[in-house]
Amino acid sequence: MVSTPKAPDPKETAAAQAGMNVDTAQAQQLTNMVDQVGPDGSLTYTQSGRNTFVNSQGQTVTIPKYTATTALSAAQQAIKDQTDSASLNLGTIANEQSNFLKDYLSEPFKADTAEAEARLAELGSARLDPQFAKQEEALRTRLANQGVQEGSEAWKSAMGDFSQGRNDAYNSLFLSGRSQAMSEAYAERNQPLQEIGALLSGSQVQSPQFVNTPQASVGGVDYAGMVSDKYKAETAAAQSKMGGLFGLLSAPFGMFSLGA
């Protein structure tokens, strides 16, 4: 007697497929984890333990865990040690020097330009006064030669223009000198901050550089598809056999029908 094949258990098929997928994943990982050795260092993979998880069937699955280790060559390691030591020193100095910043920055900055202005006045007296004295004497002589009487409107106008020019020269001297003095005062104020900033820039923490996790390309086994194809083939074969038996059973009845 021909019977229809029993349909495969979906849970058993899924569990078998999952197991094969895990096997494929491990094969993929092992295939791609290739140790590397170069002039500046090496990269090696070692099994460092195991990871476990519970799958959808409630089963505990254990898979290996690997560690990628990067090692520098002796020369590169020596350079790194020296660089790390220098960075640590710079950071330590910056930390020590920054202790005074709390009090230093808590006081409002006031640029004292009195000393600079006194120096400007001294320079003006030494350099500008003799020049203006000569120019004033020459102006008086020229006005006298031109017949312009002292005290006249023309004389007052000429001397007024001369005085205005002298005042403008002194104002320009004091304004430019005061601006320069302020710039120098601010530069002196910022000098400690710039030095600490430079120290910190030389002691920046370098983020670790990790290699990318290997990506595998091994094709997985379609176990569920193969089970389904096998079941379909067995079902078709059983139906074919059953069709043949039905033909044989119906043959005698056909013979009677022909005889009538």
Rank of each mutant, 00 (worst) to 15 (best):
L120N: 05
S172T: 14
Q82A: 07
G151D: 07
A126P: 00
Q204G: 08
D40E: 05
S179A: 15
S179Y: 04
G177M: 08
S98F: 02
S163E: 13
N21R: 05
A237D: 01
S125V: 14
L249N: 05
N167H: 08
E136H: 07
Q47Y: 02
D23A: 10
S217C: 03
G259I: 12
T70S: 12
N21E: 04
E107G: 12
L139I: 02
M255T: 10
E195N: 13
K80Q: 10
R142F: 03
L199V: 08
R50N: 07
A75M: 08
M1S: 10
N145H: 06
E150G: 03
W155E: 03
A169T: 13
S157Q: 13
L193H: 06
T62F: 04
T141H: 05
Y186L: 15
R166P: 00
T92I: 05
G254D: 03
A144I: 04
S42H: 10
T83Y: 00
A260Q: 11
A75N: 13
Q82C: 01
P5W: 01
P39L: 06
S125R: 15
D229P: 00
M182I: 12
A118E: 11
Q204A: 09
P130W: 11
R166G: 00
V54T: 12
G259S: 14
S257D: 14
A14R: 12
A121C: 01
G259M: 10
R127H: 09
G177Q: 11
R140Q: 14
Y186I: 14
A16M: 10
S3Y: 01
A111S: 09
Q131K: 11
A126E: 06
L193F: 04
V148W: 00
F253H: 02
P10I: 07
D81R: 07
Q97S: 08
E150N: 07
Q59F: 04
P10T: 08
R142Q: 09
A121E: 13
L120E: 04
S228M: 09
A121R: 15
T62Q: 11
E12T: 08
W155N: 03
Y104G: 06
E117I: 09
S42L: 03
G219C: 02
Q59M: 10
S125W: 11
I63L: 05
Q26I: 10
S240C: 01
Y186A: 08
N95T: 12
D112M: 08
V61E: 06
A94R: 05
S179G: 13
K156T: 05
S179L: 15
K11P: 00
